[in-house]
């Protein structure tokens, strides 16, 4: 899914670069609401994990492979703004060090892979988890659907960019149909990886999944046994506070 240099002409690539820089600037500010002392280290892990899993191309038939994009996973685990930043970090490292995705196409890739996926997956995931029962299985199902849908939409974003500034004379409809058709299948893999990963974190520490943190049962106040002189009371308050 990483666009190489040359597919899209310079003006559209440059425009996407401007959009990407603006998006990152907004995300750097908005991430403040998401980055508490649990989300910040999780965001580091999310970037590392997505880098690793993006190396694992899986076959989708017809001599084609796909790999995780990660926008849904990142948004569900650490929030949409922080998630988009985490994917952007991965894309920048891939372009600079691994020649994966062109340098002039970096803005296009950040727009498509970091921002479009998150913009699709996050609202969809939140809509689903508000409607569904509050259970791990339901949240994994919502993760699957949000991730699945995000991939063909991201592929459609490429088709739109190609329609505006593609270095070729192919019909936009042909490119759109081919991109969406292929990426619906890849989206199944995206959904599976996302659901399994979110499920694993939910099993270990549900409060580390920012996308459902407000839906978790309120933590019980861990009051210290009422022993003697009451000096333990202030201490127990500190321990019980969400941190």
């Amino acid at each position: 899914m990483h666009i190489p240099d040359g597919f899209i002409n310079a003006p559209v690539s440059a425009a996407a670069g401007v959009v990407a820089v603006a998006g990152i600037a907004v995300a750097l500010r908005r991430s403040s609401r998401e980055l508490d002392d649990r989300t910040a280290p999780m965001a580091g892990l999310v970037a590392v994990y997505i880098f690793a899993v993006q190396m694992l191309n899986f076959p989708v038939g017809a001599g084609t492979s796909g790999h995780l994009l990660g926008g849904a996973l990142a948004a569900i685990l650490v929030g949409p703004w922080t998630g988009a930043l985490a994917i952007s970090v991965v894309l920048i490292i891939q372009a600079l060090m691994f020649a994966d995705g062109g340098l002039s196409a970096l803005g296009l890739n950040i727009v498509n892979v970091a921002f479009v996926t998150v913009a699709v997956a996050w609202p969809l995931f939140r809509l689903l988890v508000r409607m569904l029962p509050r259970s791990r299985v339901a949240w994994m199902g919502a993760s699957f659907v949000a991730a699945l849908v995000s991939v063909p939409v991201s592929a459609a974003a490429f088709a739109l960019e190609y329609a505006i500034g593609g270095n070729g004379t192919f019909s936009p409809g042909t490119v759109l149909a081919a991109m969406v058709g292929t990426h619906v299948v890849i989206g199944l893999g995206e959904g599976l990886i996302t659901a399994l990963t979110v499920g694993a974190v939910l099993a270990a520490r549900p409060d580390l999944v920012l996308g459902v943190r407000d839906l978790l049962p309120k933590p019980e106040l861990r009051t210290a046994p009422p022993v003697a002189d009451g000096t333990r009371a202030p201490q127990s308050t500190t321990e019980g506070s969400p941190a």
Binding site: H2, T64, S65, F158
Partner: peptide, 15 residues
């Protein structure tokens, strides 16, 4: 990992 072309590359090839 699969060494087949990824979705975008395959579409670029086919189209």
């Amino acid at each position: 990992a699969s060494s087949h072309p990824d979705g975008l590359e395959k579409v670029a090839e086919d189209v």
